[in-house]
């Protein structure tokens, strides 16, 4: 029987090396010996994706590699996520996510969605080309804590500002995350967002940072 540390390294390495089959096999082996699933996800799969984000930042990986790493991660996640014990945890945190109306690009959106999946959130994925008011309706319906929106083109980015205004008017505590090529830190701040990612690869980095923030958020929620 392999040691837990060895299997965690395998999970991490197969994500980094975009080895979908290898990741699936490592996750199954990890699950078969009943090692803690959450640890496998966070210290194996997510740790691998963190390295992927770093490789992207260093221009060693580009978006095609990041997408293939994400496929490997999802292969492992499909096996480990159902094994995470639900007992002792409060209701799941929730996020509404989608690409804004007029934008049919969803690569960055899907990478951010992946990070919420990793963190165990309930994800309401509205898809792409989503009418502005649908974000508001879905947030109200689900009472989600986070709304994440993506736009790859300047021509659609302005819709985000309207959505943020509509949501914050109804519920100022909702966290807003923006992403996409035209979205800069300035734009995110100007629009009243709480976080941003400017590119698909950068979305992974931002997503990883957000996992830390989300954990703090969940801890404070559990304490209150």
């Amino acid at each position: 029987m392999k040691k837990k540390e060895d299997l965690l390294k395998e999970l991490k390495d197969t994500v980094i090396n975009y080895d979908e089959d290898g990741c699936k096999a490592a996750a199954q082996e990890y699950a078969d010996v009943n090692y803690p699933a959450l640890e496998g996800i966070m210290d194996g799969l997510a740790a691998g994706m963190q390295v992927v984000g770093e490789l992207y930042e260093k221009n060693e990986y580009f978006v095609p590699e990041v997408l293939m790493c994400a496929d490997a991660l999802y292969a492992g996640l499909a096996i480990l996520r159902p094994l995470v014990p639900k007992a002792g945890r409060g209701p799941k945190s929730q996020v509404v996510i989608g690409s804004i109306q007029g934008d049919v690009h969803d690569i960055g959106k899907n990478l951010v969605k992946m990070m919420f999946d990793v963190a165990g959130w309930e994800v309401y994925d509205l898809g792409r080309d989503v009418p502005l008011e649908d974000f508001v309706k879905e947030q109200m319906r689900t009472d989600s804590e986070v709304v994440a929106m993506s736009a790859m083109m300047t021509t659609t980015m302005l819709g985000m500002k309207k959505v943020i205004k509509m949501i914050k008017e109804k519920n100022p505590n909702v966290m807003i995350m923006l992403g996409g090529a035209p979205v800069t830190k300035d734009v995110a701040k100007l629009f009243g967002a709480d976080g941003y990612a400017e590119s698909a690869g950068n979305a992974v980095q931002e997503g990883i940072r957000m996992i830390g923030r989300l954990r703090e958020f969940e801890a404070s929620k559990a304490a209150s």
Partner: peptide
């Protein structure tokens, strides 16, 4: 193509 003829916003055509 989608022309967004009903939208009040300026949206360029897309291929949904």
């Amino acid at each position: 193509i989608s022309l967004y003829e009903d939208s009040e916003d300026i949206l360029y055509p897309t291929i949904p």
